[in-house]
């Protein structure tokens, strides 16, 4: 997926300003930055839900629109499932909606994450609801997965199990993941690259191992040192 000079304006406010980057195949990319810097808006545009005010987003040379939803797996940061549904029912719904969804894989992921599939969602813990959500997204077979804050508000064990599901169930030769997160130090070991956003712009994009190699610091320290400097 490629973004070229993508901007987004809402009324007279610029939310995203000339964002340009490429998501290489087979990588996990983390988008980091403080609240309100434009991470969610960026992911929604990449998913084809929001239309950029300027610039272009393409997936394998095709412009990204809502119609491309069948080639992009997107997980919003809000809970969209009905409380009275079970994971089983949610999986069946996904199976009807998406051609690339595999029921078998959804149950395999649910088993891996040890989440009950026959209990109503309202009776599940927050961590288990997040696991159901993750199973739905990962059971789709697409080239790109966009996850908005998949680990936020969860306990460390839930976060760890979701990260393991990402490692286990994404075909890393063909697919890429772009996820936004505040849990930078915890998530860093599963990332290839980080994109640091500030005030609707990309402040920096870098390979996480290169940051450690060249600067002798992890992504959190890197983020702090870059955030400290004023953006021109």
């Amino acid at each position: 997926m490629k973004l070229h000079e993508v901007s987004f304006q809402y009324k007279s406010t610029t939310i995203l300003n000339k964002i340009t980057f490429t998501v290489p195949p087979g990588q996990i990319i983390g988008i980091i930055g403080e609240n309100g810097c434009g991470k969610t808006t960026l992911l929604r545009m990449m998913a084809g839900i929001l239309v950029p005010s300027a610039g272009a987003i393409t997936l394998e040379e095709q412009p990204v629109t809502r119609r491309l939803a069948n080639q992009i797996a997107y997980q919003p940061d809000i809970d969209l499932f009905y409380d009275s549904h079970t994971a089983q029912k949610v999986f069946t719904f996904y199976d009807e909606q998406f051609d690339d969804f595999s029921l078998e894989k959804a149950y395999e992921i649910a088993a891996f994450l040890e989440v009950p599939t026959k209990v109503k969602l309202k009776k599940l813990s927050k961590g288990n609801r997040a696991r159901v959500k993750m199973a739905c997204v990962l059971a789709r077979e697409t080239r790109i997965y966009l996850l908005d804050e998949p680990f936020s508000g969860l306990d460390p064990l839930a976060r760890e199990s979701l990260m393991k599901a990402l490692i286990r169930f994404i075909d890393n030769e063909n697919s890429s993941i772009v996820l936004s997160t505040h849990e930078v130090s915890e998530v860093e070991p599963i990332l290839d690259q980080v994109i640091l956003m500030k005030d609707g712009r990309i402040r920096a994009m870098e390979n996480v191992e290169l940051i450690r190699d060249e600067r002798g610091e992890d992504a959190v320290q890197w983020m702090k040192s870059l955030y400290g400097k004023q953006v021109q």
Partner: peptide, 14 residues
């Protein structure tokens, strides 16, 4: 590679 990545909790490419 994938089993090792899972066990260590790191990226498969690493």
């Amino acid at each position: 590679v994938r089993e090792f990545a899972l066990d260590a909790g790191v990226n498969v490419n690493t």
